[in-house]
Every structure is written in structure tokens, then in C-alpha cells.
Simulated scan of single mutants.
Amino acid sequence: MKLKKLAVLAICLFAPLFARAAQGDPISLETLILDVPTAEVFDRYQASFLTRAYDHGTVMETIDFGVYPRINIGLSIAAHELLGSSSSVRVLDPDFQVKWKIYDGNLYLPAIAIGYDGRRYGYGYDSHRNYAKTKKFLDDRKGGYLTFTREIIVPGLNATAGLNFSDFEWDELYWFMGTFYKLADQVGLMAEWDNLRNIRDSRLNLGARFYLHPSLALDAAVRRIGRGDESERILQLRYVTTF
């Protein structure tokens, strides 16, 4: 089983090397801020490869496809302690995500989408939020969500807000909000307040996006700001192409 997971991770990591971006394939600004999903989707026949390196040498690869107009599906898989000198690398169970944009929005109303995001972060924490040899996650999956997005105040400033319930448990209802602002052709700023129900469980994330190519962008961010040892720095690389 571990060999199968390693094979899936290898395919996800190296698939972008065999894909060729068509002239003008854009990096989508609105499908995802950092952890907060927006109401935007990739076009049909468009694919996104997102590689994230984060806490404890973990690397996650996410592939999203525009399979139908307004509908995206994706798969994510991560290897814990892959980076560094650890001898206990663990390939985690794959997760999936899907999004359906149900309304494009207009001058007065935001775009609307519903979806499911199974990605989890912070593997190997105990119930007291201490890093330990466990199979628990610090951040549970977003689960089912409803999200609204629109441009506000000034051109290029996009705001997103929505709600989610992990594993479709209605008593675990959370809120999220975020903004993205493109300062120039090469730089964008991101901010989000995720997992909102109480201050202890919420996450404040800030980051910047650097456009290396029309189809390639690098994100640098800090997650869980103000949470002491739980705060983490991440780097992620997104490549957009067609299939």
C-alpha cells in the first residue's frame, strides 16, 4: 500500500514536467487564496498543479482539473517528513476536492460556489496540540463549504467569505473570509481568517504571490499567526496548463 501511495505522489510531483502550458494560460487568482476556497473555478480542459512545502518537512501535491464547465475536481497527497534527514517518511492517505460554481455574480451580487475540500494539515499532533507520534491532524479538513467572491472597493481587490462544516457535521460549522490584492504584474498580497468559530480554533494566514511566468507562481506565507509553536512558514508553487 505504501508503494502505491509513493507512486501516486511521484506522478503528482513530476506530471507538470510532461505538461506544456499553452501561450496565455493564466495563473488563476481566485480559485484558492491560501487555504480559503473562492467561488472561481478553472476553465474546462485547464489543469493546476500545486506543490506545498510546510511544517515538519511535509510536501503536499494537489492536482485540480476543469472537467466540465463550472466544475473542478482534484486529488491531493502528502509525504510527511519528506524534506530533511528524517528516516520515518510517511505517505499520507490521499484526499480529494471538488467545486461547482453555481452563479457567476453581477454588478451587485457575488459569484457563488459550493464544494468539498478533504485536505488536512499539521499531521502528527496530539489532543493538546503538541507535536507527537500520532496519526491526528492539527487542522481538520474543510469538508463541505459554500463560498462567495466579488471585487470590492478598488480594481484588483477581491474578497471572499463563506462557511464550511467538516465531514458534514452541522454542529461543527465554521466561517472563513479572505482577500487577494494584485499590487503589480509580478506581486500579489493575500490575507485570510480561516476556521472561524472561536479565537482558539481560528487561523490567521498572510502571504505574498510572485508571478514567475504567466503560467507559474510562487507563494510565500505564514499560517496560524500568533499561535506560538503552531505557527508555520510555507512555500508553494502553482503551475497552470491545459490538457
Rank of each mutant, 00 (worst) to 15 (best):
6 L>T: 06
13 L>K: 04
13 L>F: 13
18 F>K: 05
22 A>E: 13
23 Q>K: 12
25 D>P: 03
26 P>E: 10
33 I>A: 02
33 I>Q: 02
37 P>R: 12
40 E>V: 03
42 F>G: 10
43 D>E: 14
50 L>A: 09
50 L>N: 08
52 R>P: 00
55 D>Q: 11
56 H>D: 15
64 D>E: 14
72 N>Q: 15
72 N>W: 06
73 I>V: 15
76 S>A: 15
80 H>P: 05
83 L>Q: 04
93 D>V: 08
98 V>W: 10
100 W>M: 00
101 K>D: 03
101 K>M: 13
106 N>R: 05
107 L>G: 11
107 L>V: 10
112 I>R: 06
118 G>C: 10
121 Y>W: 15
122 G>L: 00
130 N>V: 08
141 R>A: 14
141 R>Q: 10
142 K>M: 15
145 Y>R: 01
146 L>F: 14
153 I>S: 13
157 L>S: 12
163 L>F: 15
166 S>M: 04
168 F>M: 11
171 D>E: 11
172 E>L: 15
173 L>N: 08
175 W>E: 10
182 K>L: 06
183 L>R: 05
183 L>D: 07
185 D>C: 00
190 M>F: 09
199 I>M: 08
201 D>P: 01
204 L>P: 02
211 Y>P: 00
211 Y>V: 02
218 L>N: 05
218 L>A: 07
221 A>Y: 12
229 D>P: 09
229 D>Q: 13
229 D>A: 14
233 R>A: 15
236 Q>T: 05
237 L>N: 09
238 R>D: 02
